[in-house]
Design a protein around this nucleic acid. Structure first.
Length: 797
DNA sequence: GTAGGGTTAG
């Protein structure tokens, strides 16, 4: 057959038009409408297909070479009659499709062929048969290249990489240079699947086989080397084939690998030599912005935006969204909004990507309500919100326990014509599970499947977690089996959420049984059992298991176990957990450090608290006000004033303002430091000096006093026998709207007693007992003791 | 060049 471009085009158009009708219609029309049937189709209809010999079949196929649609129709009808065409028939069909340039049809035929394991011949046989064709050499190799290319694509599409590579080498053996497009396709997908090593090895082998790599091939291998972190190797390869395409890939590689600065230098060179212009330039600028954002170099990122503006790119929405997203991920909402404002002023149009970052930020900062408000605001501003934005709203509502409203929002989204995807459904399923509405969660699974969206591993993990946490162990196991049946291999997370979930539901026995049933118990699973035991109040059992796990664990395991043991008062064990954590260099975050320091301080374990504190600072985590204060408090309690003072200095230097508690803690310590000598005037010494300093600083700071700080000051005056000043402070506290508590009363009362002001003491006692409903008998002994003391004092004893 | 969203948190 002669190849004519016009003819080729026409045939394609016709095929497209026909393909638009359903295949069912196609088959039926072929059978029911005899007038439209070609000779060969009529032959098929009149034959008993199941008795057709392979030879006859091939002849039939051959007779359709002028109409590939009919050839395909045959294939379909044969399948319906359970006839498997042999290798020769397939070779004929492949030849027909190839000669017509119907690549997509060829692809789907080959995918079907590969999937069908009962075909009775190997795919290599097919290549062989096609290779042996008697046609002209040009024609033969054209067909071979097409078919091997299509086969590679088909295998790659099914994730069968080894087979794809075999096809490449097989066709090479038949003297056909592998299709470069297919090779590129294969290598690209290998990268996607993280099989970087295979790409590099394949490239070397193909080059040895004489493959003519094009610029895309080089770019792909550059990408692979960059993924591996081998930037030098990538640079070397770049020199071999320096196309703009490869350069872009390399620049991206630099940015992704934390070498954005180098990318900038390279780009500057390329701008100077006019190699990079237009959209290519814009693209690499965006890469650089993203790179700087990933490296947290925000000034650099923002300056690139300015650079882009200078060149005339205007505020680029992609680059700007990268910056906003980074600020949002850092939970720096003011910067994010400030930058957005600035850019809006310069003509940036806000879009749903930017909106989603901002909404997400609110949620992360535990401001779900605000996120929802903003969602509505943006929606009412007529900004198009896509399924990602909706999903953030679903998540916010779910976390607030308002899943029903999330479902209403889902309807709103659907009404706008947005089809929910697997992530949308997963979020909502999580929402139902969080509320314990597992039946509704299961209904959603059915709904999504009905809408043609299959649950994925995460969906099932969410579901199974919800089922476990709500104590439905049979359902858990049922879904677990269903996952396997659907080819979704449960992963460690699946097993972990089941173990922890069942423990959460106090089904420890079931959790243990499940754990035992696992064929392979990974360290993560054991860690989850530790957490599960903690969850159900079995922290000692958890600890026993924990000590046998001699490898680093998830941060959350240490934290959970640590706090559980602290609550149970098992301080030694808690300490062991902490030491293990350090030994394996598992770093708790700032808030966790703070909490752990708090727990250690409450146990007066200043040494470990300090060590954790120092580790925190070393790792660049600045302790917050609470952490500083609790450390200062602990040192005060342990009478290590020097350490307390240096922490106090330290926090002020870091710009963390001490609050009323911090000042009170320090003042109280100085006050109590030298109680014996308060009357001899030693308060005028070092301690007293510091005390006055602190007081001045405290009042200068403008921080209002609270009940505790008033009490400390009252106590101080009492200890110095300045009872009038003490009483004055007491009144001032009441005047300022504060309610003196029992401690405040007691401080003054005891001084009155001590100094023999029995009447005043009794008045306060009466007031106190009335206010806090305490029977006066509680004070009788004290009153008697005080009265006796006063009498003795009067008698000069 | 499918930016940004879903799982093991107290």
């Amino acid at each position: 057959m002669r190849f004519s471009p016009t003819f080729f085009l026409l045939s394609q158009l016709r095929l497209t038009r026909r393909a638009a009708t359903s295949s069912r219609f196609f088959a039926v029309s072929a059978l029911n409408n005899p007038n439209n049937l070609s000779d060969s189709e009529q032959q098929v209809n009149h034959l008993n297909l199941s008795k057709l010999t392979q030879y006859g079949l091939q002849r039939l196929l051959n007779s359709t070479r002028d109409d590939p649609n009919q050839a395909l129709s045959f294939l379909r009808q044969l399948k319906e009659h359970d006839v498997s065409p042999n290798v020769n028939a397939y070779a004929t069909l492949v030849r027909i499709l190839t000669s017509w340039g119907l690549d997509r049809k060829l692809d789907s035929v080959l995918v079907e062929l590969i999937k069908n394991e009962e075909r009775g011949f190997s795919v290599m046989d097919l290549i062989e048969v096609i290779g042996e064709e008697e046609a002209e050499e040009d024609q033969r190799s054209l067909v071979l290249i097409r078919v091997s290319g299509a086969l590679v694509k088909a295998y790659v599409g099914l994730g069968m990489f080894d087979e794809a590579i075999d096809v490449l080498f097989q066709s090479k053996r038949l003297d056909c240079v592998p299709d470069i497009k297919a090779c590129n396709f294969l290598m690209n997908r290998l990268i996607e699947f993280g099989k970087i090593g295979m790409v590099v090895a394949l490239f070397k082998q193909l080059k040895q086989l004489g493959l003519c790599a094009n610029e895309y091939t080089y770019a792909i291998v550059v990408k692979a080397l960059c993924r591996k972190g081998d930037l030098e190797g990538a640079a070397m390869l770049l020199l071999e084939s320096p196309s703009v395409f490869s350069y872009k890939t390399f620049i991206d590689g630099l940015c992704v690998n934390g070498e954005t600065e180098k990318a900038v230098v390279l780009i500057e060179e390329m701008i100077d030599t006019n190699v990079l212009v237009g959209d290519d330039l814009r693209t690499v600028f965006c890469m650089v912005v993203r790179g700087f954002c990933n490296e947290m170099k925000m000034e650099a990122a923002e300056s690139v935006i300015l650079e882009m503006e200078k060149i005339g790119f205007g505020p680029d929405v992609s680059a700007c969204s990268a910056i906003i997203d980074r600020y949002c991920k850092n939970m720096n909402l003011p910067e994010a909004l400030g930058f957005l404002d600035k850019m809006l002023g310069k003509g940036l149009k806000i879009n749903c990507v930017i909106v989603s970052s901002i909404l997400q930020c609110y949620c992360k900062m535990d401001m779900c309500l605000e996120a929802l408000e903003k969602f509505k605001e943006f929606r009412d501003m007529n900004i198009f919100l896509d399924r990602v934005c909706y999903n953030v709203a679903f998540d916010a509502l779910s976390k607030l326990g308002r899943v029903e409203e999330a479902i209403e929002l889902l309807q709103e989204m659907k009404d706008k014509g947005i089809v929910p995807d697997v992530i949308n459904y997963t979020t909502l399923i999580d929402g139902y599970c969080l509320k314990g509405k597992v039946v509704d969660a299961l209904d959603l699974i059915d709904e999504m499947i009905g809408n043609g969206t299959s649950p994925d591993l995460i969906t099932y993990n969410v579901l199974v977690s919800g089922l476990a946490r709500n104590g439905h162990e049979e359902a858990v196991l049922e879904i677990y089996e269903r996952m396997k049946a659907e080819g979704l291999k449960p992963n460690a997370v699946t097993d972990n959420v089941i173990i922890e979930g069942l423990c959460f539901a106090r089904k420890v026995k079931e959790a243990e049984d499940f754990f035992m049933s696992l064929e392979q118990k990974c360290p993560e699973n054991k860690a989850s059992l530790v957490k599960g035991y903690c969850e159900s109040g079995l922290s000692k059992k958890a600890f026993k298991l924990f000590v046998t796990l001699e490898y680093p664990l998830r941060k959350s395991v240490y934290i959970k176990l640590f706090f559980s043991l602290c609550i149970e008062g098992c301080l030694d064990k808690a300490h062991t957990v902490l030491k293990r954590m350090w030994a394996y260099r598992v770093e708790p975050g700032r808030s966790m450090c703070g909490k752990m320091i708090g727990a250690l301080c409450r146990l007066n374990n200043a040494i470990d608290a300090q060590q954790l504190f120092d580790t925190m600072v070393e790792r660049g985590l600045i302790p917050d006000l609470f952490t500083y204060t609790i450390m200062i408090h602990t040192y005060c309690r342990l009478n290590e004033l020097q350490k307390a003072e240096s922490l106090f200095e330290d926090m002020k230097q870091r710009g963390i303002k001490p609050d009323v508690v911090t000042y009170t803690v320090l003042l109280d310590r100085y006050l109590k430091l030298d109680p014996e000598h308060h009357e001899t005037g030693s308060v005028q010494g070092e301690v007293g000096k510091r005390n006055s300093e602190l007081l001045r600083e405290f009042s200068a700071s403008g921080i209002g006093l609270d009940v505790v700080s008033y009490t400390v000051l009252i106590d101080r005056q009492c200890k110095m026998d300045k009872l009038e000043q003490a009483a004055e402070l007491f009144d001032r506290m009441i005047d300022s709207g504060l309610e003196p508590d029992i401690v405040a009363y007691t401080a003054l009362i005891s001084s009155y007693f001590r100094k023999g002001y029995i009447d005043k003491a009794v008045t306060l006692v009466t007031e106190l007992s009335k206010k806090y409903n305490i029977p006066t008998e509680h004070f009788e002994a004290a009153v008697k003791r005080a009265a006796l003391k006063a009498k003795r004092f009067q008698n000069g004893e």
